[in-house]
Design a protein around this nucleic acid. Structure first.
Lengths: 134, 134
DNA sequence: TATTGTTATACTCTATAACTATA
DNA sequence: TATAGTTATAGAGTATAACAATA
């Protein structure tokens, strides 16, 4: 049943989100940092399209991250309307640290699974990734 | 790699959340309705423990749902401090409708998968459910 | 005129601190 | 005194509408 799969994914993701430590950034802020790391420096418009939020929403998130020194804004040399947003070293460090802690949390739980269960999870990974990109 | 699985799940769940229609309730409100449907009438304290939010947060969400007529509050007969919260028929209807639309969205995407991919997804479902409950 | 970014405003969801009522 | 619920307040994240600057 598709419904069961959908609900299991939603529940697990929710559970993972609830697990963030007090020092963690919210999912939106982390999403922006991750996007900048993966795709490199981007304009505000590119970021908002990437994260599927409106430009004002993204602007607000970027303001918070800039105030925390985790990313930088610089005017585009080509087009005076555009702003180039890129990760700072501090931003990269936050990203590494968060990822390390989340992997540890998730790894602890995966470690309790049987070999069959682990295999099933690994086999599903590319499928989940594909569904997310559809 | 555990990290890849974790990230794939987070991404897909995020994608699913972004898909909610204009008429949908937020994820917290829907979570409360779903919890009431599954576990039956509950007190505010039980609901906030179940959804892992603080009592004031839950109270606020319950206020919104009560104002919309989707759940009801009644004083507990045993203990004057407690309040029993339960689904109304309207709440049940909203839940059914939302579920129907989300299943349709997800089902469309699953339909594009190969048989092997569908099998992998089904095999992983109980594992995902187990991880969410760990 | 069209595009890019921004500000103003509003609503949901979350939290902590402080209060009320009941046990 | 302790517990259950609530209110007050604040911050993050989302949106739409309106505006400024540049192309």
């Amino acid at each position: 049943m598709d419904s069961e799969i959908r609900i299991a994914i939603a529940k697990l993701a929710r559970r993972m989100r609830q697990e963030r430590g007090a020092s963690d950034l919210g999912p939106s802020q982390l999403g922006v940092l991750a996007s900048l790391e993966i795709a490199g420096p981007q304009t505000l418009g590119e970021l908002s399209a990437q994260e599927r939020v409106t430009a004002p929403s993204m602007n607000r998130t970027v303001n918070l991250l800039e105030a925390s020194g985790l990313l930088s804004r610089t005017a585009s040399p080509d087009d005076g309307r555009k702003v180039i947003i890129e990760l700072t070293d501090a931003g990269r460090a936050v990203l590494d640290d968060t990822r390390r802690r989340r992997d540890a949390w998730f790894g602890e739980r995966v470690a309790t699974l049987s070999d069959e269960e682990k295999t099933a999870l690994e086999a599903a990974t590319p499928v989940l990734r594909k569904l997310a990109e559809l």
